[in-house]
């Protein structure tokens, strides 16, 4: 039971991060490998707000989200759009964007190393126990999960119930056809990319309340988010949420029963199984 709930709490945050990436890849067609660094930047913001002003790190969300949104919008328009224009086919765009976002991720790590140094950061906030179903959990984890769930729910509504969401889904299905029905594909892609970055940064702020982090930890979360996105099926939000919860559970299981050093191995085991048996994702329909 403890494992189940702890895994669930962790999985909720993973779901948030993976949704950001899924939006960016599914709609803007950019496999953003710098996503983990956005997350770390969000984590630093939470750390900074708490240690400098001793207010709730969640205050950071109020500026992290708009700033990350603006930053990712600029990245898309300045750095990634030229690649989209240059690419002759989707394969070339994939290779180019992978290399470019690797570059960005290293640059961001370098900048954060310069600004904060290479040491580990953590702070203790709301580290009080709360009793749920007979066992104790720390309040910061539970709260982070609740906030992540709210944001995930908001995103789900945005995409499935609004006009903007409809155009986002249209671009995800077929950018050319979306252009034919008077959707400004470039604008939607840029907005979605920015939204994805903002979601990742928000996830970082949430994570910082209970996790020790350092400037170069981003890639770990990038890998996890990628595994989740592929497990869930690209662009499939429902699949991403299920996959994230599964991953959170699997990691917690392995960490408590086997060894905390094997969490990535657990993620990879799931990944391999999915690649071998359902490469189109858990709920995917068409073959790749």
């Amino acid at each position: 039971m403890v494992i189940l709930l702890t895994g669930l709490f962790l999985g909720g945050i993973y779901a948030l991060i993976a949704m950001g990436l899924s939006l960016q890849y599914g709609v803007a067609r950019i496999m953003n490998l710098a996503s983990g660094e956005m997350l770390v930047a969000g984590a630093f913001a939470g750390f900074w707000v708490y240690t400098a002003f001793s207010v709730s790190p969640y205050v950071a969300l109020f500026f992290v989200v708009p700033l990350a949104f603006a930053f990712n919008w600029l990245i898309y328009n300045w750095l990634l759009l030229p690649l989209v224009r240059r690419a002759k086919n989707r394969g070339q765009l994939e290779v180019d964007s992978i290399l470019a976002t690797f570059g960005m991720s290293f640059v961001l790590v370098g900048v954060m190393l310069m600004a904060f140094g290479g040491s580990y950061f953590s702070y203790s906030w709301l580290a009080r126990p709360i009793e749920l179903l007979g066992s104790n959990y720390s309040q910061n984890r539970v709260l982070a999960f609740a906030v992540a769930a709210v944001i995930c729910g908001g995103l789900y509504l945005l995409i499935n119930r609004t006009r903007l969401g409809l155009s986002i889904r249209a671009v995800a299905v077929d950018p050319r056809a979306a252009g034919l029905v008077a959707i400004d594909v470039k604008k939607v892609a840029a907005l979605t990319f920015a939204l994805g970055g903002a979601v990742a940064a928000a996830g970082g702020t949430l994570l910082s309340t209970f996790l020790t982090f350092d400037a170069s930890i981003g890639v770990v979360f990038t890998i996890k988010a990628l595994v989740i996105v592929i497990m869930g099926g690209v662009g499939d939000i429902r699949g991403a949420i299920v996959a994230a919860l599964a991953l959170g559970l699997a990691e917690t299981l392995v960490a408590t029963l086997l060894d905390p050093g094997l969490t990535l191995a657990a993620a990879y085991l799931l990944f391999i199984l999915i690649l071998l048996f359902r490469p189109q994702g858990l709920f995917g329909r068409s073959a790749l």
Binding site: L99, A100, F102, G103, M104, S105, F106, V107, L108, V109, G110, V111, L113, M114, S216
Partner: peptide
């Protein structure tokens, strides 16, 4: 790290 990123 920064140098590697710029090189990419």
């Amino acid at each position: 790290v920064l140098f590697m990123g710029l090189a990419f």
